[in-house]
Simulated scan of single mutants.
Amino acid sequence: KLIATGDVTDDDLLNGMGAVAKGVITGHFYSALHDSPENKAFVAQVKKAANNMRPNFMSVGGYDAMTLAYMALKKTNGDTDGTKLIEAMKGASWVSPRGPITIDPATRDIIQDIYMREVKEVNGELYNVEFATFPKIKDPNAK
């Protein structure tokens, strides 16, 4: 058994890895197969916009960064002053395609669920299938 970090089984590259990837266990914050309405809509839109590409942890990170920027700009009424934007981001919460997210007001670091996943074949394709969730994980090194 191979146990690794989630970037080893990148969702967009997983099918190209082939059968040798089956059974790999990873811990990560996103799977293209995450079962939520937000993720199903996200996957469909990414596939439509990007020549059937399967979204991965980098694309959901970009989605969340833009969501946070939009929320902060809305809160500051469009004021782009960096100090005001950072202040507006503190404590922000939303439901991402990856699951619930909060920006820790003290550290400004993300609080998110981490999923344990196993690579399995689903409908003829390889996916990171979530089997356990560690909710609301903070970076242990954030002070």
Results as ranks from 00 to 15, higher is better:
Pro37Tyr: 08
Ser96Tyr: 11
Phe57Ile: 12
Val8Cys: 10
Ala4Gly: 10
Trp94Lys: 04
Ala65Cys: 13
Gly61Met: 13
Asn128His: 07
Val46Asp: 04
Lys84Arg: 14
Leu73Thr: 11
Glu125Asp: 05
Arg108Asn: 15
Ser93Leu: 05
Gly62Asn: 12
Gly62Glu: 06
Gly124Pro: 00
Gly18Phe: 04
Thr9Cys: 13
Ile114Arg: 06
Asn141Ile: 00
Ile114Asn: 04
Gly27Trp: 01
Phe134His: 01
Thr133Lys: 15
Ser59Asn: 03
Ala88Arg: 07
Ala19Asn: 11
Lys74Arg: 14
Pro135Asp: 02
Asp79Leu: 07
Ser59Met: 14
Thr67Ile: 12
Phe57Trp: 10
Phe57Ala: 13
Thr107Gly: 01
Lys74Thr: 14
Val60Asp: 06
Lys1Arg: 07
Ile86Lys: 15
Lys48His: 05
Phe42Leu: 09
Ala4Phe: 02
Asn15Glu: 15
Thr83Asp: 14
Val119Pro: 00
Glu121Pro: 03
Ala92Val: 14
Val129Gln: 12
Gly18Gln: 02
Gly91Pro: 02
Met116Thr: 03
Thr67Trp: 06
Ala21Met: 08
Phe134Val: 10
Arg108Tyr: 12
Val43Gly: 07
Lys138Val: 11
Asp104Ser: 04
Val119Met: 07
Thr80Glu: 11
Asn123Ala: 12
Met17Gln: 09
Ala4Asn: 05
Ala32Phe: 05
Phe131Ser: 02
Val8Ile: 13
Pro105His: 08
Leu73Glu: 10
Ala32His: 10
His34Glu: 12
Val129His: 07
Asn52Ile: 01
Met71Val: 00
Asp79Glu: 13
Tyr30Asp: 01
Asp109Cys: 11
Thr67Ser: 11
Ser59Gln: 08
Gly82Cys: 00
Gly99Lys: 11
Val46Ser: 04
Asn141Gln: 08
Leu14Lys: 05
Glu125Asn: 09
Arg98Thr: 01
Gly62Thr: 09
His34Phe: 13
Gly6Asp: 03
Gly18Glu: 01
Asp79Pro: 04
Leu73His: 12
Pro140His: 04
Thr5Arg: 08
Gly91His: 08
Ala88Val: 10
Ala69Ile: 13
Asp35Arg: 12
Val8Ser: 13
Leu73Lys: 13
Arg108Val: 15
Phe134Trp: 07
Met89Gly: 06
Ile3Leu: 12
Glu121Ile: 09
Asp104Ala: 03
Asp113Arg: 02
Ala142Ile: 05
Lys143Trp: 01
Thr83Lys: 15
Ser93Thr: 15
Leu2Cys: 06
Lys22Ala: 03
Glu38Gln: 15
Ala88Asp: 11
Ala32Glu: 05
Lys1Asp: 13
Asp35Trp: 05
Ala50Glu: 11
Asn56Pro: 03
Arg54Ser: 10
Ser36Phe: 12
Pro105Ile: 05
Asn128Cys: 09
Asp109Phe: 10
Gly78Glu: 02
Ile137Asp: 00
Ile114Met: 14
Ala21Lys: 07
Phe42Asp: 02
Asn56Ile: 04
Ala69Tyr: 13
Ser93Met: 14
Leu13Met: 11
Gly62Phe: 13
Asp79Ile: 09
Arg117Lys: 08
Leu68Ile: 15
Ala142Asn: 02
Asp11Leu: 03
Ala65Thr: 14
Ala4His: 01
Val24Ala: 10
